[in-house]
Design a protein around this nucleic acid. Sequence first.
DNA 1: CTGCATCCTACACGATACTG
DNA 2: CAGTATCGTGTAGGATGCAG
Lengths: 132, 132
Amino acid sequence: MSRGHIRVTEALRDEACPVTEVLDRVAGKWSIGILIAAAHGPVRFTELERSINGISRRMLTLTLRRLERDGLLVRTVYPTVPPKVEYTVTPMARELHDSLTGLVGWAERHRSAIAEARAAYDTATEQRPDID
Amino acid sequence: MSRGHIRVTEALRDEACPVTEVLDRVAGKWSIGILIAAAHGPVRFTELERSINGISRRMLTLTLRRLERDGLLVRTVYPTVPPKVEYTVTPMARELHDSLTGLVGWAERHRSAIAEARAAYDTATEQRPDID
DNA sequence: CTGCATCCTACACGATACTG
DNA sequence: CAGTATCGTGTAGGATGCAG
C-alpha cells in the first residue's frame, strides 16, 4: 500500500500538535500494557501474549511493530530451531515508564469513582422518549 | 525464583486490564490536550476551541461530553443571554495532570529521536526486491 | 514459536450546515 | 456562544487461517 503523501500530512500534523504526537505513539489499546510488561527485561512474544489478557496475536504483532518502529522497543531474533524473539524496551521507553505506571495507578485508584460518575451521568441523561 | 519479572506480567493480567481502562478514558485524539488546557482553571468552550489547534467543534463537544461523563470535567452553564459554559477539572482529573504533562514532556524531549527511529526503520524495511 | 494475510465491523474523526 | 445533526472516510481492532 502506497501512502507516501499521507506521511507528509502526518508529519505536518505532528509538527503542529505535540500532544497528538504522544497519543499517536502511546495510543492503541495495548501499547501501554506492552511497554510496562517489557519494562523489567526482555520479554518473548508468547510471554506477552499470555500476560496481556485479551490481546489477539494480530494486535500483539502490530503493536510490537509500531513500538519497534518508533524506537521504543528493540526486537532481537535468535535463529534457533524453535524461533525465539525477545523484545526489550529502549532507554527512551524506560523514561516513559513512570508516567505510564502513573496512569495505570490513577486508573486503579479511581476506577470505581469513574464507574459511578458514568452511571450517574447516564441516569441523569436518560430522557424519556414519550413525554407528550 | 529467578524469573521475578513474571510476577509483574501476572499482576497486569490479574487486574482485569486497568491498562485498557485508562486508555478508554484518556484515549482519543484530544482528551489530554483538553485536560491540560483546563487544568489551571475554568475554561470556556470557545477558549478551548481556540487554544487547541486543529480541533473541530464536533470533536471538542464529543470529547468534552465523554470527559464529563467519566467525572473528569464539570460542566457549568450560566443562563446568560449569550450562553456561557465553563469546564472545570475535577480533583480526580487533577491527579492525572502530572502523568499527562509527563507524557507530553517525554514526547517533546524525544520527538526527533522518534522521527529518526522511524526513518531508520522504514529505510531498513523498504528493502524492495524489485523496484517498479 | 512467531509471525503474516485476509476479511469484516465498529467507531473515531473531519467537513459542513443548522440552531437556541 | 455553544452547541446539534448528518454524512462520509480512514483505520483500529477482532476472527480466522496459513507459513517459515
